[in-house]
C-alpha cells in the first residue's frame, strides 16, 4: 500500500460497492446548539467488513453512532442500514454497544444478556437457549447466574456485547468498547473480538481513540477531524499482513499506517 493512498482525501468509498453496503451514510450533518458537530459525513460498510472511526475527542464519533442507531434523528443527509431509512425503523434493528456496559444491577448476567430478545417478545425459554448457546464463546458460561457487581470489567463488557449482538442485526456499532479496561484485558478482548466477529458476516463500525486497536481490528480506518466533525482520510488495512506478523506493534505495515494516522491527528491538533 502506498503512502499516497493513506492520505487520500475522503471522497467516496472506492472499495465497497455502494449497492451492496449494509450501512450507507450519505452527506450527514448534525448541528447542536448552533454548533456544527458533523458536516457532510459519508461512508459505507459492506457485509463482513470492519471499519474503525478514529479521531480526537469532540469530533462527533459518538454522535455519528447515535445517528446510525436511531437514537438521534437525522436532519441532514440520509442513513440506510440494510434498507431501513427511518429513525424509528432503525431503532431496535441496529446493534449498538455503548461505551459503558450499562448492565442492569438487578438482573443476572443471563437476564441482562437476553434483554434485547425479551423486549422484542422472544419468550424466556428461547432467549435463554440463545444466551446459553453463545455463553461459551463469550466466556461467561460459568457466571450466567451471577449479578453484574460480581463481575470484572472485562466480563461486564463481554456481557454488554452479547446483549448487543443477540438480536442478530446485520449492523453492529461499537463505541469505545474497551476504553475503560486495563491494557492487558483490553489486548486479550481485542483478540477475542476478532475471533467472535470473524464468521459473523456483519457490518461493524468501531469508534476508538486507540490507533493500534483500530489497526488490529479494522479492515479500513476512517480518520475524523473535529470542528466540525468530518472524515479526512480512508485508510485500507492489509489484514493478512497484520494478523500473520508475530509482533503486531513492530510490523512494518503497522508502523507505516500508525505513523500516517498519528500524523493526520497531530496536524488537526495544530489547526485547532
Amino acid at each position: 500500500m502506498s503512502q499516497a493512498s493513506h492520505q487520500q482525501e475522503f471522497s467516496n468509498n472506492s472499495n465497497v460497492d455502494s449497492e451492496n453496503a449494509l450501512l450507507k451514510v450519505s452527506g450527514v450533518g448534525f448541528d447542536y446548539d448552533n454548533a456544527s458537530i458533523l458536516d457532510d459525513v459519508s461512508l459505507s460498510v459492506g457485509r463482513g467488513e470492519f471499519v474503525a472511526l478514529v479521531g480526537p475527542s469532540g469530533c462527533g464519533k459518538s454522535t455519528l453512532l447515535n445517528l446510525i442507531s436511531g437514537v438521534l434523528e437525522v436532519r441532514e443527509g440520509s442513513i440506510n442500514t440494510n434498507g431501513l431509512v427511518g429513525r424509528a425503523e432503525r431503532l431496535g434493528n441496529v446493534s449498538y454497544m455503548q461505551q459503558k456496559d450499562l448492565l442492569l444491577p438487578w438482573r443476572t448476567v443471563a437476564e441482562n444478556s437476553r434483554l434485547g430478545l425479551e423486549l422484542n417478545g422472544v419468550n424466556t425459554a428461547e432467549s435463554n437457549e440463545r444466551v446459553e448457546k453463545l455463553a461459551e464463546l463469550f466466556d461467561i458460561a460459568d457466571v450466567l447466574d451471577h449479578m453484574p457487581w460480581q463481575l470484572s470489567g472485562g466480563m461486564r463488557q463481554r456481557v454488554a456485547l452479547l446483549r448487543a449482538v443477540l438480536p442478530d442485526n446485520p449492523v453492529l456499532l461499537l463505541d469505545e468498547p474497551f476504553g475503560a479496561l486495563d491494557a492487558i484485558t483490553r489486548r486479550s478482548l481485542q483478540q477475542w473480538l476478532l475471533n467472535v466477529l470473524a464468521t459473523a458476516d456483519k457490518a461493524v463500525v468501531l469508534v476508538t481513540h486507540d490507533v493500534d486497536e483500530a489497526i488490529l481490528l479494522a479492515d479500513r480506518i476512517l480518520v475524523m477531524a473535529p470542528n466540525p466533525g468530518r472524515i479526512v482520510a480512508d485508510i485500507e488495512v492489509n489484514v493478512e499482513a497484520i494478523t500473520n506478523s508475530t509482533d503486531i506493534s513492530t510490523s512494518p505495515e503497522v508502523i507505516q499506517i500508525r505513523t500516517g494516522i498519528l500524523d493526520l491527528l497531530s496536524r488537526q491538533e495544530v489547526v485547532r
Partner: peptide
C-alpha cells in the same frame, strides 16, 4: 433514570411502556 440506559433500551427496540416498566420503575 440514566439517559444512556434509556438510549440502550431504545437501541434494543424497547417501547416507551417497556422502558417505563423495566427501567424507570426499578
Amino acid at each position: 433514570v440514566d439517559q444512556e440506559m434509556v438510549d440502550m433500551f431504545r437501541t434494543l427496540g424497547a417501547s416507551p411502556f417497556q422502558i417505563f416498566r423495566k427501567l424507570m420503575i426499578p
